[in-house]
Nucleic acid binder design. Structure first.
Length: 485
RNA sequence: UCCUCAGUAGCUCAGUUGGUUAGAGCAUCUGACUGUUAAUCAGAGGGUCACUGGUUCAAGUCCAGUCUGAGGAGCCA
């Protein structure tokens, strides 16, 4: 009964596929949106499968004027014709139009995209249309590839994909400010005898929030399945206004039983290199477009602000070289010995025990090692309660991976599996063990050494695409004062 | 949240020590041309100078506040 629909759409050839055909007068049908219409003859048609437009040639006199007038930038067309070698210079093949159908008209006067460079700030204001630009076409095809590669990587290794809750009732994770989830009336919430809001009348009968991390739930599953990973949205209500932070972002959090810090680092490094390799193999055209885009952007910068490597060179460098591995203590020593420190170039002081500032991390990664760096064994006082305490009594088995241009891209640790040490640490850090009774049960019923890490998905997309603002690698960014679309 | 910078046509921008009717390129529309490649050529339309208040004979221009955006910092992924 749906045959009419099939007959209309199932003959469509995607432009990406069509471009690899040998043109031989074969009939094909394409559908897409007009990028430009030149000379009342040449349509540059884009269907989103690739940045390369297909040139449609409309022979003069073969289409009525009223149809030609409706072919404007962004109108949607269905075209059937013969695929032939191009007579023009800009492309190797073109489609000679035989039948042309306008699937959707467009109001060219109101359509905001022009065939010229737009600022990324402007395109952010029209995020619903920016997919139709080459830059965002490439970025979001690569984002898709990365997401797919993530699942493939873990699936190949026998990890279970675990869906952790979006709405949580624990506020003990300490990963940041949370968004409250409630159905209570904002203007007149029920109060208890002390005048506080009575959450027992709320939807869940208790205060709930959007998750800031799936890690604790991940550990529950890892201590049953062995290896799990999460990949889902995460929410932080921090008032962060930077090029690296979002209020809603996606995070990948693998958690592995019978793993220590060393295993954890090995997996994280292999993971990152796998993802980059996957995109180099599957998105060559998009990467090459972004590579060119970035080098043109950098031409506008002063010489000392330009990167030494192009985007493609940088990606190949990262997969061809081992990440540098140093301890926190060694990192502090390097900073103390650095010319930058001796010349007092750092705004913040360096000494053992500090939480390294952006300028320190950037120095290690971009000036000293010039490659991704894994820093391990941080002081316990600047890290979370669940990290495994080292025998020295002062550090924990944590690891951060710092990437050039991004800073921290991965944060992970071996987890504290010893119940007594864990509850002692929670008490020291004013976290009520009773609220996390379910978490502590894993340490009571067959506890094992385990480890895991979190990778910020958008930061990975930033790194791979060479984009510089995190708002440009997620379709609809949520940041303070901004939740349009 | 803090610091710095910015906001003029649909977009990217210019706008002199405060001074008559606020300009350009691109886009759009109309016409010409017809193997173009961000086509080209000619013409036309298009403005609450972010908002509110103040100073002044006079404010796009100076001052204050607000809003929004960008960069950096903090927090972090």
């Amino acid at each position: 009964m749906h045959s009419n629909f099939y007959s209309m759409f199932n003959k469509r050839t995607k432009i990406k596929d069509l471009l690899s055909f040998t043109p031989d007068n074969q009939f094909v049908t394409v559908m897409g949106w007009v990028r430009t219409f030149r000379n009342s003859q040449f349509i540059a048609l884009n269907d989103g499968s690739t940045n390369t437009n297909l040139q449609i040639v409309v022979t003069l006199g073969t289409q009525p004027d009223d149809i030609l007038k409706r072919i404007v930038t962004s109108s949607a067309l269905k075209i059937t014709g013969k695929l032939v070698p191009s007579l023009g210079k800009g492309q190797s093949l073109e489609l000679n139009c035989e039948t042309l159908e306008i699937l959707g008209d467009s109001d060219a006067e109101k359509y905001p995209l022009q065939p010229k460079k737009h600022s990324l700030e402007f395109l952010r204001e029209i995020a619903h249309l920016r997919f139709r630009t080459n830059t965002f076409g490439s970025v979001f095809r690569i984002r898709h590839s990365l997401a797919f590669a993530i699942h493939q990587f873990f699936n190949e290794k026998g990890f279970i994909y675990l869906h952790t809750p979006i709405i949580t009732s624990s506020d003990a994770e300490g990963a940041g400010e949370m968004f409250r989830v409630s159905t209570l009336p904002l203007d007149n919430p029920p109060k208890d005898l002390n005048g506080n809001i009575d959450f027992s009348e709320d939807f869940f009968g208790r205060p709930t929030n959007l998750t800031v991390s799936g890690q604790l739930e991940g550990e529950l599953a890892a201590t049953a399945f062995g290896d799990i990973y999460t990949f889902g949205p995460t929410f932080r209500a921090e008032n962060s206004n930077t090029t690296r932070h979002l209020a809603e972002f996606w995070m990948i959090e693998p958690e592995m039983a019978f793993n220590d810090l060393e295993d954890n680092m090995n997996l994280a490094e292999e993971f990152i290199q796998y993802l980059i390799t996957y995109v180099l193999d599957h998105n060559a055209e998009d990467l090459s477009f972004l590579d060119q885009r970035l080098s043109e952007e950098e031409k506008l910068l002063p010489a000392d602000k330009r990167s030494e490597l192009s985007l493609l060179q940088k990606l190949r460098f990262v997969i061809d070289n081992k990440f540098e591995r140093i301890t926190y203590t060694e990192a502090i020593d390097i900073l103390l010995q650095s010319p930058a420190y001796k010349k007092k170039k750092f705004q913040y002081d360096v000494k053992w025990g500090i939480d390294m500032q952006s300028e320190h991390e950037r120095y290690l990664v971009e000036k000293h090692f010039k490659k991704p760096v894994i820093v391990t064994n941080y002081p316990k006082d600047i890290k979370a309660f669940y990290m495994r305490q080292n025998d020295d009594g002062t550090t924990v088995a944590a690891m951060d991976i710092l990437a050039p241009g991004i800073g921290e891209i991965v944060g992970g640790s071996q987890r504290e599996e010893r119940l007594d040490l864990l509850t002692k640490r929670m008490t020291e850090m004013h976290i009520n063990p009773d609220e996390l009774w379910w978490y502590l049960d894993t340490r009571k019923f067959g506890t094992v050494p385990h480890a895991g890490f979190g990778l910020g998905f958008e930061r990975m997309v930033l790194f791979v695409t060479g984009m510089t603002n995190i708002r440009d690698v997620i379709p609809f960014p949520r940041t303070p004062k901004s939740a349009e679309f």
